[in-house]
Design a protein around this nucleic acid. Sequence first.
DNA 1: CTATCCCGCCATCAG
DNA 2: CTGATGGCGGGATAG
Length: 384
Amino acid sequence: MAASSSSVAEVAMAAAAAAAMESAFPQEQQQAPPRPQGGGAKSRHHAYSRKEKSLGLLCSNFVVLYNREDVESIGLDEAAKRLGVERRRIYDIVNVLESVGERALREKSGLAPLQTEQQSSATMSDDEDDDKLGNPDGDIENEKLSQTMDNRSDKPGAPRCRLRSDHRKEKSLGLLTQNFVKLFLTMEVDTISLDEAAKLLLGEGHEETNMRTKVRRLYDIANVLSSLNLIEKIQQGDTRKPAFRWLGRAVIPNAENGVTVAVPPPEKISRLGQGKTSGFVYGPFHPAGARKHELDGSNKPGQRERAEDWESLSASFRPQYQNQGHLAIVHYGHLTIVSTFMRNVVVTLGDLFAHYVEAWKTWYSELAQGSKQQHFSQSVNHFL
DNA sequence: CTATCCCGCCATCAG
DNA sequence: CTGATGGCGGGATAG
């Protein structure tokens, strides 16, 4: 078992990164490299603590460890070893990390060996288990691949068959993460409990069992996002279930007061070049059980100034971290896949938000304009 | 007790 | 087939 040792040590060098993430790690990460675990039982030092193994902490360590300029590639096994965790866990954090800071400046860097196609979106009404209930075979699931990078001409021999049986992806952690984030930026309430989120993201077919699993995943995601300071757990009310609040801007120290916000350039959030298609549709968000229809006229308690919020949000991101983004190249096994996370998670997020803002504005417009088609219907997926 | 959520089995996906 | 990915949920731990 090659425990090569050389545990991670220089973790505290967040330095520059600190400006971006500045997170206050709960404690110094003291990842135990070789965790023989068990055996001892003598329990001299606190048997086994779950917290030391949390995804959140793992994520923090991961970022602090690899969010450096000289990092251009990361070996899966290496990361796992250095972080003292199993491979499986690396996949977890990388997936959510990729989702939240996905793409953005991908082609910009000139390299484009990447072949990862973005999520295809489509309806997210997962939970479609083929139970014994109408819906024999054939997945009428319309795979409406969102325009990815425009791939004129597919691979040789591109069959007419759209990806089949990719239900796997529909339930992926990555997609869930994206929808979770969308939820935050879409709902007017600033706090959401995981249960609510699960219920919302899950349409309404509650299979109890299904929701339980969903919530488990949400816990995982929430932990990672928390470690990135994108969200924070708070106590709903005073004695209510804990919920999460979207921070996003928290990454910038002292920006909370709203006076120190680094929103220098009055420039719009207009995207950088990337002149390709103007519309960049991300996974269509489906309001599932969203009952947050906004009433026209009257005082709309909800709605608020979200839009404005987004703008300032994305705007405040771009500034200093405008550095060109260095994509991190992750070696999944031997495969070399490019990811845009880390390095400049913030930068990436900035771009990402810009996209979101557009998409959401559109969505809102259509929603508001298209009468009050509130409530989950089914006409949600037609956007594009 | 309930809220969290880690662990790792094993279905799936590439090669 | 072998190996890489990564759903999924049992059940252990935190509170």
